[in-house]
Design a protein around this nucleic acid. Structure first.
Length: 288
DNA sequence: GACTCGTGGTT
DNA sequence: TAACCAAGAGT
């Protein structure tokens, strides 16, 4: 029984945000959709899109019956639109092989497209109450600080890190689920990456990083995403043209959306390769 | 393990 | 303002 448990669980009881994918009325599918959307996208931007998706596609089979293009269009500007394709593909697997029920086992979830270690553990835990180590960027940062005394965790999840997380995971199954969401919430609201609110932290007195005097991060340089002029930006521009059009668009519309030309051609080809775009006819393109 | 893949709010 | 960063996954 870690001494972190009680203060963090009590803090969560008082400060948890009310989110639509939490609470007793949320379906496992609602949790699954939220986990896909929350991969690298902030809660505030997910909220309105998640509501539309659940209303439009209340079960995996409802989404599976749509074209992938409609999923990409409804994904809107959440970013990383390949997640929409993977969610659609996962919904199809669930509809066809899992009786339209989101699996409860980690292994079955992990086998779905777009579901990695984190998402499998999160769905098993938050949708089905299973007991798993849920290691996301928030949890990793909270443990790095409170337990290891470092400002930030290592770049990749280590075996030792996973073992520590398992050691502090409450043995009681339902408490383990609450614990995981509580630590995530603490990382999201208090133990933030920049400007942590240590004055509001329920475990400030126990925090190794604070006790050490908040030493600055001294690990390898954390990668900074470049953006301007990248293929990612170019792809985003091209896809936005298709997303904002009702039907197929002529190549000239895409030509106007980005230069230089060689990069535009390369990115359009990669979008087609990724099945985010299809050639709809001579010189015309559309969502799949 | 290093890279790639969107988007927009915050500082 | 440019940099940072947000419930990661796949290659």
């Amino acid at each position: 029984m870690s001494e972190l448990h009680e203060p963090i669980l009590r803090w969560y009881d008082d400060h948890a945000r009310e989110l639509p994918w939490r609470g007793p009325d949320a379906s496992a599918w609602s949790v699954m959709v939220s986990e896909f959307m929350l991969q690298q996208t902030p809660v505030a931007r997910v909220l309105p899109v998640h509501e539309i998706w659940l209303q439009r596609w209340p079960t995996p089979a409802d989404l599976s019956a749509e074209t992938t293009g409609e999923a990409v269009r409804a994904w809107g500007r959440l970013g990383y639109p390949r997640r929409a394709l993977r969610l659609h593909a996962a919904a199809t697997v669930i509809a066809e092989r899992h009786d339209n029920q989101v699996p409860a086992s980690y292994d079955a979830l992990r086998a779905l497209p777009g579901v990695g270690d984190y998402t499998a553990a999160a769905i098993a835990t938050f949708a089905h109450g299973r007991r798993h180590v849920v290691l996301d960027t928030n949890v990793r940062r909270v443990f790095a600080r409170t337990i290891e005394g470092a400002e930030f965790p290592s770049t990749a999840v280590t075996k030792a890190e996973r073992e520590v997380a398992l050691e502090v995971l409450p043995a009681d199954v339902p408490t383990a689920a609450t614990w995981s969401v509580a630590v995530m919430e603490l990382g999201a609201l208090v133990c933030t990456a920049s400007n942590p609110r240590c004055g509001d932290c329920p475990v400030a007195e126990l925090c190794a990083w604070r006790a050490a005097g908040h030493p600055a991060y001294d690990g390898p340089p954390r990668k900074v995403q470049t953006w301007a002029g990248t293929d990612r930006q170019c792809r985003g521009r091209l896809l936005a043209v298709l997303r904002d059009s009702d039907g197929p668009v002529h190549r000239s519309r895409l030509d106007a959306a980005w230069s230089p030309e060689d990069q535009r051609i390369r990115c359009l080809a990669s979008l087609i390769e990724d099945r985010l775009v299809v050639a709809a006819g001579p010189e015309t393109y559309a969502l799949p």
